[in-house]
Amino acid sequence: MANTESSTSQLTIAETVISSRFWLGSSDYPSPDIMGAAFAAANPGFVTVSLRRQTAGQVKHNDYRHRIEEWLASSRAKLLPNTAGATSAKEAIHLAVLARELFNTQWIKLEVIGDDYSLQPDVFELVAAAKELQQQGFSVLPYCTDDLGVCEKLLSLGCPAVMPLAAPIGTGKGLLNPYQFQTLRSSLKEAVIVIDAGIGRPSQAMQAMELGADAVLLNTAVAKSNDPVAMASAFASAIEAGRRAYLAGVIPERDRAVPSTPNAGLPFWHQSAP
């Protein structure tokens, strides 16, 4: 997918070329083999991962880790560890520091959950964590709300992208507030904006890309589908098509019908009755 775009539309974040605008989570697949096949079908720019306490046995027999490492070695994808589960800036910073050591990367998907039911971010703790982690040399990609002020603040702290949610995590509702997303896109013309969370179907990802999202990050919609490999391929096509449509320039909506075939030249055009 990435190779079909011209170099002028290449996605670059923190001076790093990202090979694809489709970013994919590694969670909830039926098996490591199916996860690996879904990665091959998606060809994602980033693969998200996380870290948790593990026993010696879990460390020794970690088939998912093994398959993720195999995929990374054979592709241009990058690892994007997350701070999932953090509910304060302190917890998120702790997880990020541990993740940098475990995954040997400065990239971090910064999540600070503010509400257990909706899984919406706590933007105040998020901003505090982003400030500290940027100062520590991380490339912070924050999972945030679509609030313009919050996104501007995160960008002003040095975050190389913002990742507003389309809808609550795992709901599959798609872009709930396209008007607000268009406000973000038009206000933050130079910013990298990644739609993260809430995408359920390829048409929703395509809509976000048509409206100017720079990339889409999703997990559940692929992993929990009946056929994750086929669904990964469908999303890859949709995201590429949406990007192409955005670059081509989508026509503005109108309230009145306008004929696409001209009336001028009809054999009865402006003809007086005999």
Binding site: S26, V49, S50, L51, Q54, A84, L102
Partner: peptide, 10 residues
Amino acid sequence: VDILGVITGG
């Protein structure tokens, strides 16, 4: 003492 390894994530 916390010992943490790789898990899948979204």
